[in-house]
């Protein structure tokens, strides 16, 4: 408490750069939302205005009526939810195995995970697509979901976090006769809340915003996800409907904001504790 008072009294000036930073981060976002309510002319007028002069709902009306918006939305939700659930399960299982179970090749396996973390996705892009196609999955939800069910970053986060759970807890459970699955589900998972929340947000975010993969893997419009759908309707060959684009971006951001508000507390805790030994 004493420290906090001290800060409040003598370091108020620290808030100036923080406020500037905040403005820099938030302004583009505010501009996006306000642009979603502006007619095209106003967006391109070259003047920076925070509030629309001639506010319009036409962009949103277009977004919801002109295109098959609901099907893009449903596709995005199905894919993101499946990817998040898959990651929560598989990454935590892998993380548990890599940190708490002794088996030959454990270090090598972890090294493989770390390597995968460092390979840029574009490198594996075409091989992955060929693989998915040969499995007969092109243009199915399988193609959109399966390749992303266990992200290397998620495995890393979970391994670091679960590694911090005291061995004595797990050994006690083992002495009481619990099997590995029982230990995993009743001891490890309940203790991993913050890391799981972090993982859920990160994976939801990346799946929700993913553009290139669904663009290629979905071969008909009924399989498009939101980002692909919005690119399709807002950008023509020689014109871009910026209002529609910004309205779409605003709608895309909403679920992420809601998710983050719910998981915010865990998220910060998770980020700050993983990797600390």
């Amino acid at each position: 408490m004493a420290i906090r008072k001290n800060i409040r009294r003598s370091r108020w000036y620290l808030y100036i750069p923080l406020l500037i930073g905040l403005a820099l981060t938030v302004l583009p976002f505010v501009w996006m939302v306000s642009g979603a309510f502006k007619p095209q002319r106003e967006i391109l007028s070259g003047e920076f205005t925070l509030l629309p002069e001639n506010g319009t709902l036409r962009n949103f009306a277009d977004l919801f009526t002109r295109v098959d918006f609901s099907s893009y939305f449903v596709n995005s939700v199905v894919v993101a939810v499946a990817v998040v659930l898959g990651n929560l399960l598989f990454c935590s299982m892998l993380g548990y195995a890599l940190s708490k179970i002794e088996f030959p090749g454990r270090r090598a396996l972890f090294a493989v995970v770390m390597t995968m973390l460092m390979v840029p996705t574009v490198v594996t892009f075409i091989p992955l697509f060929v693989l998915v196609t040969r499995m007969g999955l092109a243009n199915t939800f399988g193609a959109l979901i399966l390749p992303f069910l266990a992200a290397p970053l998620g495995v890393f986060i979970m391994r670091q976090f679960i590694g911090d759970i005291p061995d004595s807890l797990i050994e006690a459970a083992r002495l009481d006769g619990a099997g590995e699955f029982r230990i995993f589900f009743t001891v490890v998972i309940p203790l991993s809340g913050p890391a799981l929340a972090t993982l859920a947000i990160l994976q939801f975010l990346s799946s929700w915003n993913e553009f290139l993969w669904p663009l290629v893997a979905a071969q008909t419009e009924d399989m498009y996800t939101l980002p692909v759908g919005i690119a399709l309707i807002s950008a023509g060959a020689n014109t871009v409907n910026y209002g529609l684009l910004l309205a779409g971006a605003t709608v895309i951001v909403l679920p992420i904001l809601v998710l983050f508000l719910f998981l915010q507390r865990f998220f910060i805790q998770g980020i700050s504790t993983t990797g600390l030994k």
């Binding site: 892009f125 060929v130 196609t133 040969r134 663009l215 692909v228 060959a237």
Partner: peptide, 15 residues
């Protein structure tokens, strides 16, 4: 989408 058509076409051809 226009901007990304080449990506889509070349991946389709590759597969």
């Amino acid at each position: 989408p226009w901007d990304d058509a080449p990506t889509k076409i070349s991946t389709a051809i590759a597969s």
